[in-house]
């Protein structure tokens, strides 16, 4: 079995139109995400939490508003 490549996240995009402010991302990865005054998620620090936690935060979003990309620009989440 080949060694699983460590998860690297190089870019995070939040679709503000999809975000409804459930704030699950902030609850799970507060170092990466915060809410702005319109109660929408914003990116504060790409490396504010470890990559696994950031992935969990993205997966927790009930509107799939968080898009993660790796170093090659490939979409890591939502799974395609």
């Amino acid at each position: 079995m080949s060694e699983k490549k460590p998860l690297r996240i190089s870019k995070i995009v939040i679709d503000r139109d999809l975000c409804i402010g459930a704030a699950s991302c902030v609850t799970i990865a507060p170092g990466v995400f915060q809410m702005d005054e319109e109660n929408k998620a914003i990116l504060v620090d790409l490396r504010g939490n470890d990559a696994e936690t950031t992935l969990l935060a993205a997966e927790s979003c009930p509107t799939k508003a968080i898009f993660l990309y790796d170093e090659d620009g490939k979409q890591v989440y939502p799974y395609t």
Binding site: G21, A22, A23, S24, N39, K40
Partner: peptide, 16 residues
């Protein structure tokens, strides 16, 4: 132990 929220946007008016 978690502090969670429920939100909605009433047109462009956020409610949380």
């Amino acid at each position: 132990k978690a502090l969670t929220s429920y939100s909605i946007n009433c047109f462009d008016l956020p409610i949380a």
